[in-house]
């Protein structure tokens, strides 16, 4: 079943076409990797999908519902949550309360069930020891996980992770990958934007590649890394000659 479908989405800022006629779909339970050089339009595409921008043209369907031009909080309640590249925790609140906001409002829950759900999500992403710390005082890798927890708590079945692993060391990345797999196994679909090829290759079921706002390739990880256009635009010669594990 398709959880998310973008049909010929374009986003123009004046004369600049940040996203041009991009179509893709995400199946439920799937992890879709999205790669592309800086400025390729990945974040803009995400912002169109979650409703921060209204796309200039094209349609977006979440769980079969047309969400084109809907406000972000509605899109979130229909089932799509996002973690931002630029982290924005509610710094005056504890980690627990941050996640609670997602459960209360995104998940439209009452206080009691929302607290219960929050505890579960905190357990899932391994934030227990930080739960009652102020989110302004926790280190970056933990903040990344907090973003993830807040998105999961909304109950959305589709998660968009915009460079959720930037700035993590290899060990932390391994931990994060484990968490992502657990999330996928709990029945959610994910789109992962990442520059770290090890991450993208390691967990993606499929990969799409953007360049200058257009989709230049789509396919299985092995297909994509051997694609001429992708090598030219993004990977460079050396990496593509490596064997993919």
């Amino acid at each position: 079943m398709t959880s998310l479908e973008c049909k010929k989405v374009s986003m123009k800022f004046g004369a600049l076409a940040a996203v041009q006629m991009v179509s893709f779909s995400l199946n439920s339970g799937e992890i879709l990797g999205m790669i592309g050089p800086n400025g390729a339009g990945k974040t803009t595409l995400f912002n169109c999908v979650i409703g921060v921008y209204r796309p200039t043209s094209g349609k977006i369907y979440v769980n079969g519902i047309d969400v084109t031009g809907m406000k972000p909080h509605k899109v979130c309640r229909i089932g799509l949550a996002k973690t931002s590249q630029i982290m924005e925790p509610f710094t005056g609140m504890t980690v627990f309360e941050n996640v609670l906001v997602g459960a209360l409002h995104g998940g439209r829950m009452k206080m009691g069930p929302a607290s219960y759900k929050t505890e579960q999500v905190i357990e899932l992403v391994g934030l227990n020891e930080y739960a009652y710390k102020l989110s302004g005082s926790i280190p970056v890798p933990v903040r990344r996980r907090l973003e993830l927890a807040r998105a999961i708590a909304t109950g959305a079945n589709i998660l968009l992770l915009d460079e959720n692993m930037a700035g993590l060391n290899p060990h932390e990345i391994d931990e994060a990958l484990e968490i992502l797999k657990k999330i996928r196994d709990s029945g959610k679909s994910l789109i992962v934007v990442e520059h770290i090829m090890r991450v993208v290759m390691g967990i993606s079921d499929r990969i799409i590649v953007l360049n200058y706002g257009s989709k230049i390739a789509e396919g299985l990880p092995e297909e994509v890394v051997n694609n001429e256009a992708v090598i030219k635009a993004y990977l460079g010669e050396k990496l593509s000659s490596l064997k993919v594990a």
Partner: peptide, 18 residues
């Protein structure tokens, strides 16, 4: 919690469903 989330980071609150 909605009000406090708006105070801390309005756009993050919005994408969290507020």
């Amino acid at each position: 919690y909605a009000l406090k989330a708006i105070k801390e980071a309005e756009s993050a609150a919005e994408i969290s469903g507020v």
